[in-house]
């Protein structure tokens, strides 16, 4: 089914919650090309976060098909390895582990790899340098500003060289100035690392940063427009 250029191919994907009372995805079709930067917009409850969870293999669909980075997510038995190697998540609330240092937070996704502690340390350090946080590596995340925390979260998302970065409202908890810095960083890393970037946002201005804007409504793609 996979077109060689597409990293994400979704066909007629359905997902309901609460014993079918809530239809989050209602036969959704979507294709995203390798290396694309896509924004997903839509009102609350439209299904955009559910879609992001499906692409990130945090949840499974009820019907239809979803293939991400060549993996059939409807039928693959264990999705941990897939998440570890193919996906990097950036959450709205950063979700850093408070008792660990900045460096240790970035090392966390590498525990499932075969890297040694030294290699993990080296890799985390490189990424923290790329997000300009090399002077904060031993600090506790609670001591950082919102923008700095989100940069740590971005470094953590990239540490396992994923094919896709899934960002759920990455600027939602930041002021506009800091949000701009984070978006620029995401865009720069997307180009530099040649990673596919899928970003959920409410903000039309933020969505404009992407190459394509997809609007989701009632669990379906309402529109898909190049910016």
């Amino acid at each position: 089914m996979n077109n060689g250029n597409n990293i994400i191919e979704i066909r007629n994907l359905k997902k309901s919650y609460d014993k079918g009372k809530i239809n989050a995805l209602n036969g959704l079709d979507l294709e995203i090309k390798k290396g694309e930067f896509v924004s997903i917009m839509g009102p609350s409850g439209s299904g955009k976060s559910t879609l992001l969870n499906m692409i990130g293999a945090l949840d499974r669909g009820d019907e239809g098909s979803i293939e991400v980075a060549g993996v059939d997510l409807m039928h693959k038995s264990s999705l941990n390895e897939f998440r570890s190697t193919e996906i990097g998540f950036v959450f709205q609330m950063h979700n850093l582990i408070p008792n660990l240092t900045v460096l240790e937070n970035v090392e966390i996704p590498m525990y499932e790899t075969k890297l040694s502690s030294k290699e993990m340390h080296q890799r985390a350090l490189e990424l923290l340098k790329s997000v300009n946080l090399e002077d904060k590596i031993d600090q506790n995340p609670t001591k950082l500003s919102g923008g700095e925390r989100q940069r740590v979260a971005i470094a953590r998302a990239l540490v396992n060289h994923p094919s896709i970065i899934l960002a759920d409202e990455p600027t939602g908890a930041l002021d506009s100035k800091t949000g701009d810095i984070i978006l620029s960083l995401l865009k720069e890393l997307h180009q530099k690392e040649r990673v596919t970037l899928v970003m959920v946002t409410h903000e039309p201005y933020v969505a404009q940063m992407a190459g394509r804007i997809i609007n989701v409504l009632d669990g379906r793609i309402e529109s898909s427009n190049l910016t």
């Binding site: 390895e81 570890s84 996906i87 582990i97």
Partner: peptide, 15 residues
């Protein structure tokens, strides 16, 4: 929530 993050970054249930 932290355990959710660990799962999101690929940690196995066993770990």
């Amino acid at each position: 929530r932290e355990i959710g993050v660990l799962k999101a970054v690929g940690w196995k249930d066993r770990r």
